[in-house]
Design a protein around this nucleic acid. Structure first.
Length: 272
DNA sequence: CGGGGTTCCTGGCCGC
DNA sequence: TGCGGCCAGGAACCCC
């Protein structure tokens, strides 16, 4: 499931193929999640950015002009994005844009949890999670103090809060479990101390940076734009390891649902 | 406005 | 072999 490291890897590898390209025509699946793809026809892509798990294509009316719109794409669970041909096995193309170099920007999404939209440039008010998104993990505004304050503003469980994208942007189920394990914080906690916040802040910045360095975590569907896989799945210490021994202390890791998400933790290292 | 519940989706896997 | 049931889960959306 593309989280920040996967989306950032896609952004880096896709940017050179779309920058400066005009969109000649578009096609989309009939779902309202994808039909806004057609709104990008006629525009020129003059930059590719990212906030959290959202890709932001800067669109201008002409090459080199100031952007007046943005194509926002969220990849959901199984979204894939690349520039080039559409091989036979990709049966779940949900949108495609013909570029002025004759190639297609392709959005393939098996389970249709992804979505996209074209908005006035910088106006994210119609994408609520994006509008309320917390700071990037590597931003100066993201500090142990900001993390502690954000968590204190709600009484929900820490795992739930991290997935809400408000204390910090970009964590999904994988990197949230990894960060909490590394910081030795129980996912069911509803408040954190100053030292907890220090450890969790460090753990989040580390797991995200390492995920990017490893070009993302490929468990099943995630692919980079060139069709390759990430390698971070070989570095996971906690996610998906319920019933197996903790890599730190040997205790059997436990799993249970928190807000309908499978959550794994070490009952010894991550005491309540 | 925060928070809880529901919904969207397909494919892989399991047991019968 | 076929098939029903279950599971994976990010975020929009509705409602109180």
């Amino acid at each position: 499931m593309p989280e920040l490291p996967e989306v950032e890897t896609i952004r880096r590898e896709l940017a050179g193929d779309v920058d400066g390209r005009s969109i000649v025509e578009a096609w989309s699946h009939s779902s309202a999640k994808f039909t806004p793809a057609l709104d990008a026809v006629g525009a020129t892509v003059i930059g590719l950015g990212r906030r959290g798990k959202y890709l932001l294509f800067d669109l201008a009316p002409a090459k080199g002009a100031t952007p007046d719109a943005q194509l926002i794409i969220h990849l959901g669970m199984t979204g894939q994005l690349w520039v080039g041909a559409i091989p036979e096995e990709h049966r779940h193309v949900r949108a495609k844009w013909l570029l002025d170099d004759g190639r297609h920007l392709v959005f393939n999404d098996t389970r249709r949890f992804g979505r996209l939209r074209v908005v006035p440039h910088g106006d994210h008010s119609s994408v609520t999670t994006l509008a309320q998104l917390g700071p990037e993990p590597d931003a100066a505004e993201f500090t142990p103090a900001s993390l502690k304050a954000s968590v204190a503003a709600s009484s929900r469980r820490i795992k739930t809060q991290l997935l809400s994208q408000r204390p910090v942007a970009g964590l999904g189920n994988i990197y949230a479990d990894e960060a909490l394990w590394r910081a030795r914080i129980n996912p069911s906690r509803r408040a954190i101390t100053g030292p907890d916040a220090q450890r969790l802040h460090l753990a989040i910045t580390e797991v995200i940076a390492e995920g990017i360095a490893n070009r993302g975590t490929t468990l099943k569907d995630y692919r980079t734009p060139d069709g390759g896989t990430g390698s971070n799945q070989h570095r996971l210490q906690c996610y998906g390891r319920g019933g197996q021994p903790c890599r730190s202390c040997g205790t059997e890791l436990r799993s249970r649902q928190i807000d309908q998400r499978t959550t794994t933790w070490c009952p010894a290292c991550q005491r309540s």
